[in-house]
Design a protein around this nucleic acid. Structure first.
Lengths: 172, 172
DNA sequence: TATTGTTATACTCTATAACTATA
DNA sequence: TATAGTTATAGAGTATAACAATA
């Protein structure tokens, strides 16, 4: 019998809705730009960016790639499949673990990324950062960093995908 | 011939990705909760919340509802249709403008909202606000408020849906 | 037995364009 | 002619479950 939690105070409620609105509008704009400039979905862009910018080798295991980008394995397989079909990545069995698949960005993938990046930057700068000072941006980053870590380390509350029924939060 | 815009500095880049990550994780969690607790999508929840919490009368014109919640008219029609089918809202011709449609939340809609709200609050509190002080939340709200306004007032850059080809940003 | 990844499938959501009706 | 909304339709994306293969 869960006790009714205290409702969000107006300040937090406002912060929550502002966050969702801003992210939603930004994502919509960014997806449009990515689509028009390079036929990429945002998820595909994230995958390419991880491979091309984050990784020195240009490679990642599927599992590592999934982290934070996608919420189901099959979703990642789907997106990676699209990228592969477009010639932007290759997939090959991981050398050390035969179960694993290593995804590697191709030259075409890097080229596509480079093609898309300026416009992407432009949209983000214009939409998100135009009304923010550099100090604001820094403050924003520092506010959100611990939240991101917290979210990533917090179990999704239905951690075990093996359970059959799952806990139905039903109750009254 | 657009000059290559200056790339985002690391601070802004970090803020951007943190924002997108946080919002994405939060939305995912929230959608799951809404679905489990009340068979609602996030968009449907937003619509109900606007009608039930924002509006004193419990009514809104479609056009007003669309604002910021949905990016195409047909999308709103679709979601409003689902809500109506579920008995959570009603739709009727607007009294003053025969073209318009007024959407009104029903008692069942309010009940559903009340049913879902505690769990919703709980998820947001736990995921988003646990690592933030009240002052942090306030700072976040104040940083995002002008961004939201800016985004809302910035034309989507392809304002005219009448154009056929559209400008292909192609050319490298 | 646990983990990695794929496949099949079903479903939700979104967007475009064509259309109707009122202002 | 412009605006409000609906419909038809098509496509993209997601998630679940069953499956195969390796650790």
């Amino acid at each position: 019998m869960p006790v009714t939690p205290p409702p969000l105070d107006p300040v937090r409620l406002g912060a929550y809705f502002a966050l969702m609105d801003v992210a939603s509008l930004l994502r919509h704009a960014v997806e449009q730009q990515l689509r028009e400039a390079g036929e990429l979905s945002y998820v595909q862009f994230q995958l390419l960016a991880r491979l091309g910018l984050d990784s020195p080798t240009g490679s990642h295991r599927m599992t590592d790639l999934a982290d934070g980008v996608v919420y189901s394995r099959s979703g990642l397989t789907y997106q990676a499949g699209l990228l592969e079909k477009a010639g932007l990545v290759t997939r090959s069995p991981s050398p050390d673990d035969e179960r694993g698949v290593t995804v590697t960005i191709t030259d075409a993938g890097r080229a596509r990324l480079a093609e898309v990046l300026p416009g992407h930057t432009e949209v983000v700068s214009r939409l998100l950062f135009e009304p923010l000072s550099h100090a604001d941006a820094e403050a924003l980053a520092q506010l959100l960093a611990p939240v991101r870590e917290h979210m990533r380390s917090t179990p999704p509350r239905s951690a075990a995908p093996r359970r059959r029924g799952g806990a139905r939060p039903g109750g009254s």
